[in-house]
Simulated scan of single mutants.
Amino acid sequence: MSTTTPGRTAGSTADPAPRFLDLLAAEWIKLRSLRSTYWVLALASLVAIAVDVNAVHTDLTYIDHPPPRMPGQPPYTYDPLFHGLSGIASDLMAIAAGSLGAITVFGEYTTGLIRTTFAAVPDRRAVIAAKVLLIGGITALAGLVVSTVSFFTVNAMLASRHVGLSVTDDGCLRAVLGFAAIVPVCALIGMALGALLRHATASIVSLVLVLFILPMLFGGDRYRWLKEIGTHLPTATVQRLTINPASTATMGKYAPSVLDSWITMGAWGVAAVVVTVAVVRRRDV
């Protein structure tokens, strides 16, 4: 005589649905098995810190021997925030994180692993949520390490010249957090492009286009609508957030506010996640 339990037919051996922690563990195993991916992010982080430190170390000569003052110009003042969290380091971290995000998506489609993943876990939203949380968390940590180490290292170097800054100074904490926050946002943008295009070359080229080529097309102050589009692109937000309030540096006319840049950065991240989830749910594997 056979017995049945509620929700299960006789003789069935249905497995329990995987927990979200199980999905996170599975995504971590996938990421860890591709050593080139996290080594690229680690190497990019070290290089970004080296770029910032070397830039300030090179500037020590100009701090000790400032250039002659031009007639009618204000005295030369060194901006540790601009040089200590450089745009080159930020761009390097952006492309590394964006590439990592794209690889985690198009890599599974290229190898066919995505079919196995969705066969084991039919809930595609849960799979993407695990990817987003893992990649977002790892790249956010990398961005925070780079921004924090760079800021404190270069300002320790500048302390002997009496031009160093403290993280409690006006605009400094905002700059450190903004520099760190753009890294996971670019990783999420990379994931969205990887889901849309499902091709290595197309995804990386599109990432470079969005992050670095498009801003060149929306510069200048002549047309306000063009400038405002440019200031709402991803890399422009970190430029605004890392401006030293004590310096004369600006983004020109029609510059966004600090709050506007934070909202824009967050909107890019949210939009990237929505696109990734929508595309993966609706398209066949």
Rank of each mutant, 00 (worst) to 15 (best):
W225R: 08
D123K: 03
L43W: 03
F20T: 01
F179M: 09
V183Y: 06
D79N: 15
T37N: 12
S33R: 12
V145I: 15
D170K: 12
W28A: 05
A140N: 09
S166W: 12
S147G: 06
T139Y: 04
L233K: 05
F218C: 05
F20W: 06
Q239S: 13
Y38N: 05
G252C: 09
S36V: 11
L193Y: 10
D52L: 04
A271N: 07
G164Y: 14
M251I: 03
H65Q: 02
T3L: 12
I229F: 04
H199S: 10
L259C: 01
V154L: 14
E228V: 11
S203V: 02
A119C: 07
L193M: 08
A192T: 03
A97V: 08
S147W: 08
V167F: 12
G87K: 04
G72K: 08
T61D: 14
R69L: 10
T116D: 12
K131H: 14
A142F: 11
G7T: 02
V270S: 09
T201D: 08
T264R: 02
G190C: 04
H65F: 08
L233G: 02
L197F: 10
L31K: 00
A200S: 15
T168F: 14
L144H: 07
A156I: 08
T58V: 11
A44M: 04
I243P: 00
A96V: 05
L165R: 12
A267E: 11
D91M: 14
M216K: 09
K253L: 13
Y62W: 05
T264Y: 00
M70H: 10
A44F: 08
F212H: 02
S2Q: 14
R198S: 08
R35M: 13
W262D: 04
T235M: 12
